[in-house]
Design a protein around this nucleic acid. Sequence first.
DNA 1: GTGGTCTAGACCACT
DNA 2: GTGGTCTAGACCACA
Lengths: 126, 126, 126, 126
Amino acid sequence: MFQLDLKSRKSIYEQVVDNIKSLVMAGVLKPKDKLPSVRELSRIITVNPNTVQKAYRELERQGYLYTVLGLGTFITEQSERKPDEDKLNDLRKQLRQLIQELRYNGMETAEIRCLILDLLNEKGQA
Amino acid sequence: MFQLDLKSRKSIYEQVVDNIKSLVMAGVLKPKDKLPSVRELSRIITVNPNTVQKAYRELERQGYLYTVLGLGTFITEQSERKPDEDKLNDLRKQLRQLIQELRYNGMETAEIRCLILDLLNEKGQA
Amino acid sequence: MFQLDLKSRKSIYEQVVDNIKSLVMAGVLKPKDKLPSVRELSRIITVNPNTVQKAYRELERQGYLYTVLGLGTFITEQSERKPDEDKLNDLRKQLRQLIQELRYNGMETAEIRCLILDLLNEKGQA
Amino acid sequence: MFQLDLKSRKSIYEQVVDNIKSLVMAGVLKPKDKLPSVRELSRIITVNPNTVQKAYRELERQGYLYTVLGLGTFITEQSERKPDEDKLNDLRKQLRQLIQELRYNGMETAEIRCLILDLLNEKGQA
DNA sequence: GTGGTCTAGACCACT
DNA sequence: GTGGTCTAGACCACA
């Protein structure tokens, strides 16, 4: 379920963040679902609790989670989320950069289009 | 020409790397072009020479540049580059993640498709 | 344990690289072993931490080590290493050159053969 | 005839040295043969004369060449060369290191033996 | 504690 | 002139 690669250059807490984001976006974790407690998750994935803590905090900052003191942390409902124009702009920039790199690494426009349309369909069904 | 943000979470040398990559991929810097010397660029962007050198090294590792001792650093010819399958896989992963995020931030599939097709055309003409 | 020659034409960080490679290949350092921290090793061999770090980076690039942020650097498991055909070709070239030089310096083919067979056996038992 | 790779990490003068050594050891250049003048060779291989100069000097130091002022530089006769025990020791060390690396990069003892015997025969006929 | 980045400034080798 | 190495010492982020 959780893919952690200690040898990666990405810090562990970032990997935890990405993993949880993926689970949310794939619909495995749904709004109002309760997440495991920091200590619990840290045991499950054998990672320092501080690291999990940091990941939860970051996810909260990005609006994916919210914490109710004494009860736990939960997935944010869609209606609560506000589209963040700055974030979208940033994502667009990244997308542009990514496409440049794909092309620079020898991938043809047609190939890239195929790849992306595939990805879009795949997600659409998830 | 060069966009550096000292406050960014990205390290300076990484930003230098990204900037140069962009210039290469946009065709501003062409194969066999000579880059500014380490010292020169460091003066231009008011950054320590070591930092610039680190960036150049990384770009060399990634195959964008090559160094001729005592002469300077130059842009790699396309024909010299060999496609790196690991790199491509990594880019594909990133793309997937990016699309997930776009969708999570409220962008519809159709919108994303439009955005990407636009980007693909734009580059095709560059 | 560590042989450093400050007067050598080889740079210090390269010597550190070679030393550690030797320890790894001789089996003194085994997969998953933790290496001394950058600061620690720099103290031991009285060399600047930056120099040690450069050596570690190079070893990581060559696949001998990997880094876990905040924890330390470790020896790569054999199974994780992928044979690098370019590297092998390079080594073959070096070998060829080396044999030429041995011969040029007066060593007979038979002597060279003996020498090499000895070396092969020696390692086989290590 | 001459293989120069500007992108190599090896300095150019070292590559010139290696090339000439190879020609000598392969018997293409024979004792008492006259080498092209510094200026001539520098033109032929389109390299800075200083670089060729440095290569010749190094080859002289190692005993491959000798210079007669006003006449040119020539290949040393075999009888003039004195076996250098230090050099031989150094070469043995290098050989040992090289075999270690081959093995570390996944080559089996048997394979290495084959490779080396091949190389020995190949040279024996040259 | 760990590695990672950055600066300032010196010295060297190669072209 | 070029890149490459090294030192000393500071600061940051991660676990």
